[in-house]
Amino acid sequence: MDEFEPNIIGFLCNWCSYAGADLAGTSRIQYPTNIKIIRVMCSGRIEPVFILESLKKGADGVLISGCHFGECHYKSGNYKANRRIKLLKKYLKEMGVDPNRVRFEFVSASEGHRFADVVREFVEELKKIGPISLQITP
């Protein structure tokens, strides 16, 4: 059997992390194909429902990446995301979903290498956690 390849949705903020992922591209830094990126203006835009929808529709992991603290293009959106994601993780645990399936990271526009590292690490971690199975009983 083929090795399990986790499917990851990545929400990246436009100003830091999306630009960091672009830099990984222009620098040709290789990382696994598992992540599919959705651009948002700010990590502060990420509603818990985006994460839950991703997991419900079969994502094995969700990465949210924003600017480093103090560097948010909108001053404090990343702090808000941080708080929300921490709370959501507690809730996920109650629901029986491994909270490590949701990962919040900081990647700046100049951290192409870091972005690739983050993706690699997350893929490895999700391989250990295994595929998601959210069975909805009828």
Partner: peptide, 28 residues
């Protein structure tokens, strides 16, 4: 930035170009 929309308990705030419908459709 959308921080307000993400927090609105009644879903009254929508973000132009990054609405829930748009983002959730993209995820799907």
């Amino acid at each position: 930035c959308g921080s307000c929309a993400a927090a609105c308990p009644t879903g009254a705030i929508s973000m132009n170009h990054f609405s829930n419908k748009q983002v959730i459709a993209q995820i799907g």
